[in-house]
């Protein structure tokens, strides 16, 4: 009977066959035209003059410097946002305080502001003519056109990734487990380490992966504060632009292919993380069904008197 109902519902809710094919073709066509073909083009262009040229473009000193700088900037910005994002999500999800809504809005700000504006803000603050410019010059501190400026700009644009990934999850999970840990005598730090962190680890990992991809790939904000000094303040995206403007297409595409590769690795990692998470949930749900159906058998109480001896031993 139930089977029959399912069958009817499926028929009623499904488009005709030709419609499904047309829709699928359109979707896949768009995907190919706008994602797969450009990505393939990057690789093809990069290898147009052969492997030797490709490798030469990557080990060229300026390219190596750009790769190192990109890794360094991401290596600083990502951990910073990992800590900040977790702390902000923790505060927002677990506590009630004034200005909470403002904080949530502020975290989203980098998504809505053009990265160029973000870069200009730092120029305005730290530049020669900026608010802190003279003071910085007097104390011989370089922020703009140096690593600190690149890190600041990158931190700004990657602000929301970890926090956003965690906030909704932590809000959904609530405070109960943390409170339980406290009543059991765990300190705040222990509670975070043993109770909160394991519950958010997958979301945290996803956030870090996305944050890292954006940190390495960021162009606009970094471009404004970098100064484009070859071999010193050029990150990979900036290096690609310079090579391209100098008509060194093969070299430009070679470095760009690294960035494209990073994107693919990121997607694969994200998919793997989500798959692992899904698998855990699915396994738990299957087991839960078994537990529910066996509850009637499981709950048959053993006479408490028979347990009295053990109870006293425990107490």
């Amino acid at each position: 009977m139930a089977r029959g109902h399912t069958f009817v519902a499926t028929r009623a809710n499904t488009e005709p066959r030709w419609m499904r094919i047309v829709l699928t073709v359109i979707a896949l066509g768009f995907l190919a035209a706008f994602l797969v073909v450009p990505l393939a083009a990057v690789l093809v262009e990069a290898l147009r003059k052969g492997w030797a040229t490709y490798l030469a473009a990557l080990v060229e000193p300026d390219a190596l410097a750009a790769i190192k700088l990109t890794l360094l900037v991401a290596g600083i910005a990502v951990p910073f946002n990992l800590v900040f994002g977790t702390a902000a999500a923790w505060a927002i999800a677990k506590f009630e305080f004034r200005g909470k809504q403002l904080l949530i809005t502020l975290i989203d700000l980098p998504f809505s502001v053009s990265p160029v504006v973000a870069g200009l803000v730092y120029v305005l603050v730290f530049g020669q003519q900026g608010w802190l410019g003279p003071w910085l010059r007097d104390h011989d501190i370089k922020i703009l056109f140096a690593v600190p400026g690149l890190v600041l700009a990158t931190v700004f644009v990657t602000f929301p990734f970890v926090a956003r990934e965690l906030i909704s999850l932590m809000q959904a999970q609530g405070n109960d487990e943390e409170e339980a840990a406290l009543t059991l005598g765990a300190s705040g730090l222990r509670t975070f380490w043993h109770v909160t962190l394991p519950n958010i680890k997958w979301a945290l990992l996803t956030g870090v992966i996305l944050c890292n991809a954006r940190a390495m790939g960021e162009f606009g904000a970094v471009s404004v504060v970098s100064g484009h000094i070859r071999g010193q303040t050029n990150t990979m995206p900036l290096h690609v632009e310079i090579l391209y403007n100098e008509y060194q297409f093969a070299a430009a595409f070679a470095v760009a292919s690294l960035l494209a590769l990073l994107a693919l690795v990121t997607l694969v990692l994200k998919a793997v993380v989500e798959w692992l998470e899904e698998r855990g949930v699915a396994a738990a749900e299957r087991a839960k069904k078994v537990a529910d159906s066996s509850e009637s058998a499981a709950r048959t109480p053993v006479p408490a008197d028979a347990r009295a001896g053990q109870a006293l031993a425990v107490a």
Partner: peptide, 23 residues
């Protein structure tokens, strides 16, 4: 001993999601 007391000693290796509400 506690798990025996609350009559769930036979499922000590399970995760909470694998238990029914009463358990």
């Amino acid at each position: 001993r506690l798990l025996e007391l609350v009559q769930i000693d036979w499922m000590s290796d399970r995760y909470p999601e694998q238990l029914s509400g009463g358990q």
